[in-house]
Write a protein that binds this DNA or RNA. Sequence first.
DNA 1: GTTTCATGTAACTTAGCTAGTTACGAATCG
DNA 2: CGATTCGTAACTAGCTAAGTTACATGAAAC
Lengths: 149, 149
Amino acid sequence: MKRNSRLSSTLHILVHMAEAPDRALTSEELAGFIHTNPVVVRRTIAGLREAGIVTSSRGHGGGWQLGRAPDKISLAEISGALGETLLPFSTEPESPGCLVEQAVIAVLDDFRLEAERLLTERLSNITLADLTADFRRRYDLIGVSSHAV
Amino acid sequence: MKRNSRLSSTLHILVHMAEAPDRALTSEELAGFIHTNPVVVRRTIAGLREAGIVTSSRGHGGGWQLGRAPDKISLAEISGALGETLLPFSTEPESPGCLVEQAVIAVLDDFRLEAERLLTERLSNITLADLTADFRRRYDLIGVSSHAV
DNA sequence: GTTTCATGTAACTTAGCTAGTTACGAATCG
DNA sequence: CGATTCGTAACTAGCTAAGTTACATGAAAC
């Protein structure tokens, strides 16, 4: 798993889970999909469990399943549960008392607030169901073209 | 200079340059403002020079100055010239051929495109002049309160 | 109840990124 | 010429996050 690909890797995993609603997938299986380690998977999606997006069970036949229907899981929720910030720039003061810095930070924080609002709104309108639909479209296309040939 | 604070540090520097329009500031001076090294400053704002946002001159009396009026320099330009991405998540394929991944990346790239458009639009409406105005407001406030006491 | 399988989590290692540093050449001014 | 300042390459250091190992906990199968 590359750096900064936690969101896409998690979505990848969740689509696979949505496509196998009848059984639990182990972290081992999930790790295989994104070419990484089971422990990394468990660590990465631990936040999703707390958010109720997925459930996990131990022991024989245990593993991971979606916590609710894919059309009730938005990318905004997923992104939030991963605990990542959408905007990477920092606005931590480094020169306390400097008025120039204070002005810069004030403007940047305003922008950040507005930007996060906008991005979250957009992400709220995309659900896991949209992703699985997109996947199935691609899958059917391949099927059709294979059939044609 | 902390990680991820290149944008705010650069803005800090640029406000100082806007406040001293009559002379060139050396990288040594600029580095002092953000508590870092002259070489780091030169490296960081090299892109701004190529974008015409600042100019640099060598030798005696040399240093850095704004390339044009502060109200003609938008944060969008500055951010772009720094070569940083506004959105931190990666959409690099890691499993070529995987249809699930392709669906995820397609949706995420669409979102990124729209998000970058929105953010850039917002940043285009903020200029360096807005920052200096904010700074002066704070400066005058301090002045008034000092006078009152 | 014992065995097996799977998660939960802590602790450590490794890799990559970026700031920081050193060094030196090129340009400019007095 | 000598002082100053940028431009840039090359190296070092430190932080962050992924990867790994290890082991305890819990659940199902037998």
